[in-house]
Design a protein around this nucleic acid. Structure first.
Lengths: 364, 364
DNA sequence: TTGAAAGCGCTACCAA
DNA sequence: TTGGTAGCGCTTTCAA
């Protein structure tokens, strides 16, 4: 129970000490021009009186109009659209909405990403939210921009040791781990399982694979992990790989789709009449996947909570910009395990299946 | 891309229209004392110029020191302690922390709850956060306090049709539904399953039971739901019921513990040598449960995210108090499905197993 | 080293 | 129906 009949201000402190409010302000903020003696006196009485700065007044006076640039790909829209929405929501709720937001977009990871980030940097925002794509290519740029004084906040993935101030993402290793455990529960006897992995971010996919493999080894030694199929950036490629995989005689009975192109793989399964016979754990959530879960065609999907990622990334960046530090710089969200039973809870967050790859080879 | 070189104020609008800022303010807020004509003119130019109120200035001027009372039980601490922590965290992050918080506690649901709420009401807070216990007993009081003008925010459960402004809880029906689906996945053949339900809140437990039963019927017709064991408020009672249940010849192979006394049931299972042989889905998360999950003794637990519940309840109450309305009054969170694989993600949120029932009959 | 005072954008009150 | 103005708590500049 904290009883403060009325909040006390620097004026109260000034009066109690018979000094001016200017001096109190200087002492409180450790600015130069105060004698050590008065400074400690002020600090002590402030403590005693339970002084807390009035943030409204502070904000009003300083009236710093924070500008934030957001650099994210268009594709995959069912992931990045809600992520952007989360950023917008957080910005709307933030004090004053005095914060200006600008969104920069590029087609997809690996195509125009570096350029977009450089362009954004040129606009000299107070802070930057961005997706670190291919770490190898991004790292030098992140380091450069960070050193130039612009706080960088990673979202969707992380880029450690680059000077970025923090990151928000779904826990990739544990995503893989969950997928393995779910498959293990559904496949009680000896069987093969496989992982199909892909774009988004190299780092995250490596992590997911690690988690998947490690958990299989520990919790489900009866399941054998087949050679990983990786690097299909395009649906058609994913489709072909899936067909080949599922036609071989030791075909897997469980599949972990950590890729964005899960629909292409699903189509391959359907064509072979294996949909519903093979246990599938997918990633992310969109309309077509929801339908498949509802009809028991796939077991589960691991929802990476893009909306929350955007929201938290924004909040943390603003916290850093205003308060100057971050209590937990690296946030790794718990992915939601979406099954048939809890699917309705995510209905409001489901977006259309991503259409758009006009320039790539589409799936028929 | 929104470019606003500098944010515009009511002064700008006033100058543009050659009127005083007082008039602009009146028009903008629909206060009386403005002609319809000037009002529409102001509204239109405000729209055109893209006026957004400076919330800092507004807050500074109004300087309303919002007071919020929180009325929650001590027991069960592993649920209500993090819930309180969530409220505190949200209060700390809120603009100015100009909001005063007071916590009221009572031993447990049904013992001193009504009295505590009445006592809190007597302190005339601007808003109240509380757990609606037994709906039958609470409803009249909630209605009364609401009508007296104090906004009431339910947390942990809901109390519909009482005049409360909103609620935050885990989705009880879907919790039951998830439990059924998890058991169905692990028990592929004909078997009996049972639910042990208990205190917390009557409404929620009925909901969990509904979800469990309905999902069993639809998704797992091969599983038979045995008569529900309900109403054991005390560990010893839960323990006895569990012993009796598991000793009968058609004993269940799957158990859903929607009760707070899961540990007592677990002890019964252990005694009978059934721990690990019977599939168990529990509720909430605390140290002993975490240990059991880690060692594969129980399948999963449904984490009701008390911290988040507290945080959201506070944020929504404050939003209501300041902005006057709520976009989504009833929030039903998706419970986290905690398995062995994703347990580490929740480690930081795990509290000690609740000890405290000095006055009740303890378990040996 | 310290004091005095202006002013951030807004609300509310009093006067016209 | 309108205009004018004090002042919320803070930062900052200019004088002393």
């Amino acid at each position: 129970m904290n009883d403060e009949p009325k909040s006390i201000s620097i004026k109260d402190i000034a009066e109690a000490l018979n000094i001016s409010i200017g001096t109190v302000d200087r002492a409180l903020h450790g600015r130069r021009g105060v004698s050590e003696k008065t400074k400690t006196r002020v600090l002590k009485t402030a403590e005693q009186m339970g002084y807390k700065p009035n943030l409204a007044a502070q904000a009003l006076k300083l009236n710093r109009r924070i500008s934030i640039g957001v650099v994210l790909p268009k594709h995959i829209s069912y992931f990045f659209d809600p992520l952007r929405a989360g950023i917008r929501a957080a910005a709307g709720a933030a004090m004053g909405s005095q914060i200006s937001l600008e969104f920069h977009e590029y087609p997809r990871i690996g195509s125009g990403d570096i350029e977009a980030l450089e362009a954004a940097h040129a606009r000299k925002y107070d802070g930057l939210i961005f997706l670190p794509g291919d770490i190898q290519r991004f790292s030098p740029l992140i380091r450069k921009i960070s050193r130039s004084g612009t706080p960088m906040m990673c979202v969707g993935s992380d880029a450690p040791d680059t000077g970025r101030i923090g990151s928000v993402s779904a826990h990739a290793y544990i995503s893989g781990s969950i997928a393995a455990e779910l498959l293990a529960h559904k496949l009680p006897r000896k069987a093969n399982v496989a992982i199909l992995t892909g774009e988004l971010s190299t780092l995250d996919h490596a992590e997911k694979l690690s988690g998947f493999a490690a958990t299989l080894a520990i919790q489900a030694p009866h399941l054998t992990l087949m050679p990983t199929l990786e690097g299909h950036e395009k649906p058609k490629e994913a489709y072909r790989q899936a067909l080949t995989l599922m036609r071989q005689k030791d075909r897997p009975e469980g599949l972990y789709l950590s890729t964005a192109n899960s629909i292409a793989v699903i189509e391959a399964l359907e064509e072979l009449g294996l949909l519903g016979k093979v246990q599938v754990v997918a990633t992310d959530l969109f309309q077509d996947l929801a339908t498949l879960i509802k009809s028991n065609k796939i077991l589960a999907t691991l929802y990476q909570r893009p909306f929350t990622q955007g929201k938290v990334a924004f909040e943390n960046l603003v916290a850093y910009l205003t308060r100057g530090n971050l209590e937990s710089p690296v946030v790794q969200l718990a992915p939601h395990i979406v099954l048939r039973s809890n699917l309705p809870l995510f209905a409001s967050r489901i977006s259309e299946t991503d259409e758009g790859e006009p320039e790539s080879d589409s799936l028929e």
